[in-house]
Design a binder for these strands. Structure first.
Lengths: 228, 228
DNA sequence: CATGATTGGATAGTGCCACTCTCCGAGCGG
DNA sequence: CCGCTCGGAGAGTGGCACTATCCAATCATG
């Protein structure tokens, strides 16, 4: 198909597709003539993935390029590609190095070490997600909110269960290439699912605890959306 | 204290503090003279919260104003304030109305209805988090990734447990005003904690399943960070 | 009272990022 | 041959979170 059809079928403007091509998020089409290229279903699928990563997963364009580059890198074996790809994914802006001397950051690291020991994990400190965790915990401590090992432990245990569920899902994907892509896509795209469900569960549990109206039908005001 | 001291103690530049004052994220100080204002510990605490929401929680400035405005709104009772505040928090850019006719979106809504029924939740469709969920599930379906009720159910159950844990934490906060702020802060600031732990758990579970090296000490290559 | 520094307020500018517009020459179809 | 589309490249746009600059009032000091 031509660029125009790729655009129509994906719902992405031709200008944006050209931009993605330029940025290396999308492999170039097969050149038919000196001025025309042909795109196939793989391009369409990749384009949809790119859009999903960027729009739903909030992954920056530069990061998406890295991640997809690792997925496509035939010089690496599957494990390495997975590691590089998932490791490139961001959580948030990296903390500045000055924070290393902040006592809150220090305390956060100790808390997290304790948590990992409690969970029996062997996470390496270089893992980017661990750095995000340090930043988040340090921020909570700065605001005097609870985030000791006891507070974090339920989160850690639930994360373990999530991981089991996630890897089961990924294992169920067939082709190896798709499986690698799936690991990236499901890691990123299930994040909004998880966060949305958590907030909905908050509303639900809140109502369950504090609802003063009828148990069953009356719309409780507690944590109601009041949206609009 | 003066603006300069507020800046020094919070680590936020005076220019940024002025910006937050202008934007209404921070209440004005008590005017001492026509050209000077006095700030107190509450300002400092609020400023830290604002920074945490914006930098760690990735909340847009305009949204933070809404959220904090609701927290401070004395015209509403506690339940209403909580509802408005948490309901204002974003997950992601809102989907365009055209998506309403997309069959993927339709299918996503049906899946979610089924999920909510299975979980026994009474969530209202107007809840913003539910809309984010629809977008995320529709995106997954568009990419042919599994996200039927069976796939989502573990997430829903875990979200329920999270909510119990979270509300327990919030209940442990003492003063009512602080409790309201805590609900907002913990809702937002535990999100990166959760996501980080999930990714770390992925690496952990992945190694547990696929590690070919020694069981205990050898650094497995599977899902290793390979970072840098 | 003179004077230089500081404060808080207003306005305009900066940097980043994800596009998006505009132009261009090459080709294709009738 | 001619109007059209195609793909490529560079510059421009808009949103956002600051940030730099200016200004008049005021404070500390001699």
């Amino acid at each position: 198909m031509r660029l125009a059809e790729l655009s129509e079928r994906s719902g992405v403007s031709t200008a944006t597709i050209k931009y993605y091509l330029r940025e290396g998020l999308l492999p170039p089409g097969e050149r038919v003539t000196a001025t025309q290229s042909e795109y196939n279903e793989d391009h369409l699928r990749r384009l949809r993935l790119v859009r999903a990563l960027i729009q739903v997963g909030r992954v920056p364009v530069a990061t998406a390029r890295e991640v997809l580059g690792a997925v496509d890198d035939n010089a690496l074996d599957m494990d390495e590609r997975l590691g590089v790809a998932v490791g490139s994914l961001p959580h948030q802006a990296p903390g500045r190095p000055e924070e290393a001397e902040d006592p809150h950051v220090r305390a956060a690291r100790e808390t997290i070490d304790g948590l990992l020991a409690e969970l029996g994990w062997h996470a390496r400190p270089s893992y980017p997600a661990a750095e995000s965790l340090v930043t988040a915990v340090a921020t909570l401590r700065r605001l005097d909110y609870p985030c000791d090992v006891a507070s974090l432990l339920p989160y850690g245990r639930l994360a373990t269960e999530l991981a089991v569920s996630d890897l089961d899902m990924i294992s169920a994907i067939e082709a190896p290439v798709t499986q690698l892509e799936a690991a990236v896509a499901l890691t990123v795209l299930y994040e909004p699912v998880l966060l949305s469900l958590r907030r909905m569960a908050h509303a639900e549990e809140s109502r369950r605890r504090y609802s003063t109206g009828g148990e069953g039908g009356a719309p409780a005001k507690q944590a109601g959306p009041a949206n609009g």
